[in-house]
Write a protein that binds this DNA or RNA. Structure first.
Lengths: 339, 339
DNA sequence: ACCAGTCATGAATACGTATTCAAGGCAAAG
DNA sequence: CTTTGCCTTGAATACGTATTCATGACTGGT
């Protein structure tokens, strides 16, 4: 095999110039006379030279890599976001080092260390909760961090989410307008800010209207837990006439359980509303009424914040919430008079 | 901010030893006296030292990173595989640099170059077709490559797939045993070996039984194309009584189109069989009969091959096919006598 | 024609680690 | 007591690039 690694030195010799000149040709700011530049380029092409990114990163201190930590890849919302992230970052000349982590402090800690060892320029955490101890350490290290679809209690770190409380409120208003009276909530994991906020906005709105929720069960972002919650709800003495589910991923399990297992008609017997508006929510099999999380805008905002921090300027942490509309489909009864 | 990068030199000074000694403490093969080792470790912990992976990679020539190229992230089969890959590689001490690429030669070329620039130790390509020109170049470069869920015509590169032709055959036999007579195929993309092989195994088996397929349409691994194909099939003069769909992802679109849009009953009026057995195939809404691709075993095999190549031993390219069972659920009429 | 100022270029060095090499210490073998 | 050999350690160097600095050439203004 021809594992002859071609270095800038080889190109320099072939082109009759010095190594720094070769470096300048391939770097951004370097200034080289057109004559030498073409000579270098020709030699480089001839030899098949490409700069070694590792060596470059070592001297510049810029790895042009951002670390991505993801928890739930079975939820298509995140794969959608990942796809957009990847595309945008490639355009900006950044690479992605990806890690999957369970939502446990120890696991997250370990992964973050791994990323720091790799000198990543920034870290993006999707649906991962972070201990304050960790945010402190990262701030100390001076590495930019942005939380995607997770808030943080002390606001010492930038986070981008949808307007979760507002979203919960929109669902409550929609269900109230549809004359539902026994409204249950299978919530997102209450260990996550998103789950908490959606629940809060939802319950507050119900109570402002003089109604208390039929019941609230933590669905843990899990299909199995959500399905079990559905069974429990529907076999109670007075089942709900509407269920707001903390995300679409769980809502599909709820719908499956209602229709197929329990033989309940949706939306005739009961209304179901989700949260996320993943592509599958629009599929005919589910046709789910849900709150849209604008993945595209959320990704753009998260990257903009991350880049602002990376490019210095002492960018202070911000909490960004992006509003999204309620997408009305066929899984929930509509308010009377609504065309 | 305390962006004081702690280096091995700092630790060495603090512990009263030389930098190489520090290096030996943190490397695998180094031999250091217990006394000095503990002194070094204590100093390292006190200062918060961690070795700089970039610098280490530069000298060793081992980046401990493998490049992953993925095309279809909306197909959950790949996210499932990605999750397993990530877990296994982390256990083995490897990191993942991930890229998304369209299935176009130019895009793939660019991404591969990017990975090579980063000195990855190996490349894993999932559902990506590679030009022979590219395989040659990679072989020349001496970088191990494994194709996941894609074959390669000239067999000059290792590939791991399921037994696609055999899978197609199993579907054909099952549908024939179920007394279907007008059997259509909405195939996987015929630009991909998987799509071709499933089709070949399927059609060959039908013809061996004296039956020619009702029709064969390329579904391009796309929901939209598969849905359109379904419409076309069902509005023909003599619609099929069974459809074998090239993967689950498309099969869901076919089922949605049949049931909701066209009002056709499945499996009473028509049988549908998919390929992959993604988690969703087991959901009550779809309950899809399908051929299982054993993601776990495929991932393990792919990694084993990749590691064998990385660890030298002049491991020759292999073509590995992993068999998977037909999972019989409710979307297709079962053979009579089958319990 | 003279000077200030800009630009192109190479020599030297830095980045943070691993590895080679030589030297010294020490234990075991005779 | 000597010798052989292994183990530990530090000095020097390599990895492949970017950057600083000094030098020399060249430009333009007068």
């Amino acid at each position: 095999m021809g594992a002859n690694k071609i270095t800038a030195m080889d190109v320099a010799r072939a082109a009759g110039v010095s190594q720094p000149t070769v470096s300048r040709v391939f770097s951004a700011g370097g200034s080289v006379s057109p004559a030498l530049a073409t000579k270098v380029r020709e030699a480089a092409v001839k030899l098949g030279y490409r700069p070694n990114t590792l060596a470059r990163s070592l001297t510049t201190g810029q790895s042009k890599t951002i670390g991505l930590i993801v928890a739930y890849l079975d939820n298509p919302f995140y794969t959608e976001a990942l796809e957009r992230l990847s595309r945008s970052l490639k355009e900006m000349g950044y690479n992605i080092m990806i890690f999957m982590a369970a939502n446990e402090a120890r696991d997250v800690d370990e992964v973050v260390q791994s990323l720091l060892d790799h000198q990543v320029d920034g870290i993006l955490m999707a649906s991962i909760s972070m201990s304050s101890e960790l945010t402190d350490r990262l701030a100390d290290e001076g590495v930019p961090v942005v939380l995607f679809n997770r808030g943080h209690a002390t606001a010492a770190v930038t986070s981008v989410t949808s307007a979760n409380a507002l979203g919960g409120r929109k669902v409550a208003e929609f269900l109230l307008a549809g004359d539902h009276t026994r409204i249950a909530h299978i919530s997102g994991w209450q260990g996550a800010s998103t789950g908490q906020d959606r629940l809060a906005g939802f319950v507050d709105t119900l109570e402002a209207a003089g109604l208390s929720p039929h019941s609230v069960i933590d669905g843990m972002f899990s299909r199995a837990v959500a399905a079990e919650a559905t069974r429990k709800l529907m076999t109670s003495r007075t089942p709900p006439d509407a269920i707001f589910v903390g995300n679409d991923h769980m809502a599909f399990a709820v719908l499956d359980t209602l229709r197929v297992e329990l033989g309940v008609r949706v939306p005739d017997d009961i209304s179901v509303v989700g949260y996320d508006d993943v592509a599958m929510a629009g599929w005919a099999a589910y046709d789910l009424t849900t709150v849209r999380q604008p993945a595209n805008r959320m990704v753009q905002a998260a990257l903009a914040e991350l880049m602002a921090q990376i490019n210095g300027e002492d960018h202070p942490p911000r909490t960004i919430e992006i509003d999204g509309p309620l997408i009305i489909r066929g899984s929930a009864r509509r308010p009377a008079g609504d065309i």
